[in-house]
Design a protein around this nucleic acid. Structure first.
Lengths: 206, 206, 206, 206
DNA sequence: CATGAATGAGACTTCATTCAT
DNA sequence: TATGAATGAAGTCTCATTCAT
């Protein structure tokens, strides 16, 4: 009887419980996907690490690949949000020109991925255009892109050129990071950084 | 006497047959790996397409992943060899400066991968530092790298900086091509090319 | 309330079902292992006979050889337990001296294996010292050994000698049974029995 | 032309060569069968070790199991022949009674198998009544059995009893050796020997 | 909502045997 | 007689997904 009264309370508790389970699932999956790769991680292992039943897995996602995308989007949004906040804060303290702001933003991401190369690896290995588009629909992520493009449109540049230039910068920085941090190429990211930023500046210089 | 002749003929026929089989295997596997991805391609399908028996598959490679590497290395060496030849030929006809030669080389590769984006996809999705090192041990591939670095050493630049600059250029070009040609991002490679080459020039300019 | 009852019922039903499946698996595997040998029995056949899916097989054992051991240990323990019970019962009805009890015990086993030579065959063909040790950790099996040794220690004999004598008796009886019942040597076990028991008595006589 | 003349010589050479190949095949197979077991040894490995081609394997035996039997019979005959010779020699030097001769013979075999437990293992693991009968048709092996039985018939004993007694002794000694030398039971053969010979004597004593 | 036993298609790989040379 | 590349049936085991409870 008491139980019936607590209907609302119960559902709240249940939904909290659900959220908790989802987080455990996401974290366990991320840890395994990063460490072993998506194909090499089996659902059995994920649910065991998450402490949930196998059937429950399919209550939270369509399949393993759907889960990868969800995790990537969630974590990427989080990083971008923080990067934007840090940029705003820094800019408030000591205003920077456009190139300075871009470099600051890139540097923030590089420093983050230096500590979280797992995530970078996961993103790169599961990249697709469809995922990229989904990401752009996230407010936290798409905003950065818009700011970049707006600068060029304000400075009277051709919008197409601006987009392509962004595309090249992102490709370049991403690839260099991936090679350095994930493929463990012999080029340490800290050694490459000066040269990399020099390149970014040159490209942006128009 | 007839017998002796037969002996030679025999072994020739057999080894020709063997070569033929290997090529059929490599081609069938490449077609499937490119079209469907390595993990999604099953050995059964490869051998059916190649018209060989399943057991024969394991006569030519340790397993599916060994085959991927063999195919990538073989095809990459082939492309690089041709690119080097074309560069030499073109340079003979109308000599170019260093930057011109680099751009020519890059352009040759881009044009090739435009027609063979399957190979580019296969390479990227199976890239690892170990594979990269194996590639560099191929005369046809490693040579291009050496030529690039030699230029910088001759021009009195710092060797470390030269290597890093090469690393950045390769990362950038590779990523742009991959995104354009494989991920089918909305940026057509031909539209991006001018901007891309402008970036390459700026980076090389020192 | 009804729900709570259901809960118990559910788990009972499920676990009963599970036990049933396991027994079907064990029985089918035993039948095939005995009739055709372990190596000649394929998992496909076992699961077909047991009426379970292939995957289910690996829910109950690591592999085919793990299953053999499990079956041998389970059945051996069962036989030994019954032999001990029969011995106790018989001794209660008409008490026997030590040698008499040993012969009774051996005779019980021989009569059992006469009807179940399949099991004897399976045991012998998959015998190893490690399996022997696992068997000795079974209460039902190890106990018989202890009783035998205790007799000698009580009668003041050397413990080492007792153990070796047991070892010889077990080896002898086992081999004679195996040759007679499994290898189908022309020596019928019933014809050899008198001579065999005479040997046992002589050996035990000290 | 010269070749044709040498017909006889050639065939001799060829047959010598053939014999050599057969020996290499037998020795390589024995080494592998002993070390890894018959089922775990693949034909490919045998021929590689023997330095012959795969197809040649089937020129010398029907299949792997046929080869095992051939090897066992050949080696067993060799051991028995030597044991008989040693017994005759020893008996000439200092004549022994029947039991003494049996023990000498057993001891010779045990000492041999102590150095060649591989062979004992191979024999036991591939024992069948049909193989036993083939062995008895070998002069070198069957003779020992006949001598044993003749003794009993001369001493007026029942022939059936004699055969059974032999059967029990052989079973007992064989099993004890197998357990000690092959299964590596904790009972060292040298420790068990005195007790074992005591048992043999008691059994033979009638 | 949650569970986890059961499923079974299908993956990879091995290897005894054949047969054209 | 000798070869060894080719065969392909047969083997073991995995794992995403379902569904009765």
């Amino acid at each position: 009887m008491a139980e019936r009264k607590c209907g609302t309370l119960k559902s709240t508790k249940a939904s909290e419980n659900k959220k908790l389970k989802r987080n455990r699932l996401y974290d366990a999956a991320f840890e395994l996907f990063s460490r072993k790769g998506v194909n090499e991680t089996v659902v059995d292992e994920i649910v065991k690490h998450a402490g949930i039943a196998k059937g429950t897995f399919y209550l939270y996602c369509k399949d393993k690949y759907d889960l990868v995308e969800k995790i990537i989007l969630k974590r990427s949004a989080y990083v971008f949000e923080n990067a934007m906040k840090a940029l705003a804060e820094q800019n408030r303290k000591s205003p920077m020109d456009f190139t300075g702001r871009v470099i600051f933003f890139i540097d923030y991401l590089i420093e983050f991925f230096k500590q979280n190369s797992n995530l970078l690896s996961l993103i790169y290995k599961n990249l697709s255009w469809s995922l990229y588009e989904k990401a752009m629909n996230y407010e936290e992520i798409g905003e950065a892109k818009q700011i970049f493009l707006r600068h060029f449109s304000l400075s009277g540049s051709n919008a197409q050129t601006a987009k392509r230039r962004l595309f090249i910068v992102v490709s370049m920085v991403g690839a260099v990071c991936y090679n350095s941090l994930v493929l463990k190429s012999p080029y340490d990211i800290d050694d490459v950084k000066p040269e990399l930023y020099r390149c970014v500046k040159k490209i942006l210089a128009g």
